[in-house]
Design a protein around this nucleic acid. Structure first.
Lengths: 66, 66
DNA sequence: TCTATATGTAAAGTTTGTTTTACTTTTGAT
DNA sequence: ATCAAAAGTAAAACAAACTTTACATATAGA
């Protein structure tokens, strides 16, 4: 799975730390998500999508190996 | 977080085992999700949404305590 | 009622998400 | 060139997702 959180952050002018605070996770969690180190929970993706006012599918993308 | 997987299954006439097989998890995982035993990964919610041809937000819902 | 299929549940174990702390590297402004 | 803020990274520890096995309960049809 991939995501475009970094782009959404840029659009909304948020640092990783800002975003982390807003959705209630650590900054490292945001960083790891952006670097595709792991797959976040559905609660996290829903929160991020809500914050950025986009559907989950516009931010997180399935890949062939998923 | 809540979800309406059971309803979607009914609409598509799928058993828990059917759905489990289609998205590549165990039947108990589907059962536990329906009973809100845990929060699935974003890969799972994307796959389920894709299968049911609905946005993730139409199947999974944030609650106040999330 | 008998039987098959679907669903619920539980425990143990493995894998993976997430936090915390801490340090390094990059970037941008002065 | 310097400095501060932002981003990258890593290891240890903990929490949660997910699997496997196994059994119990429900439901519907013959």
């Amino acid at each position: 799975m991939k995501n475009n959180i970094k782009v959404q952050r840029a659009i909304h002018d948020l640092t990783q730390a800002d975003l982390a605070k807003k959705i209630g996770v650590s900054r490292q969690t945001i960083n790891a998500m952006e670097k595709n180190k792991y797959v976040p929970s559905t609660v996290l993706s829903l929160k991020i999508a809500k914050l950025f006012k986009k559907p989950v599918e516009d931010i997180f993308f399935l890949e062939d190996n998923d």
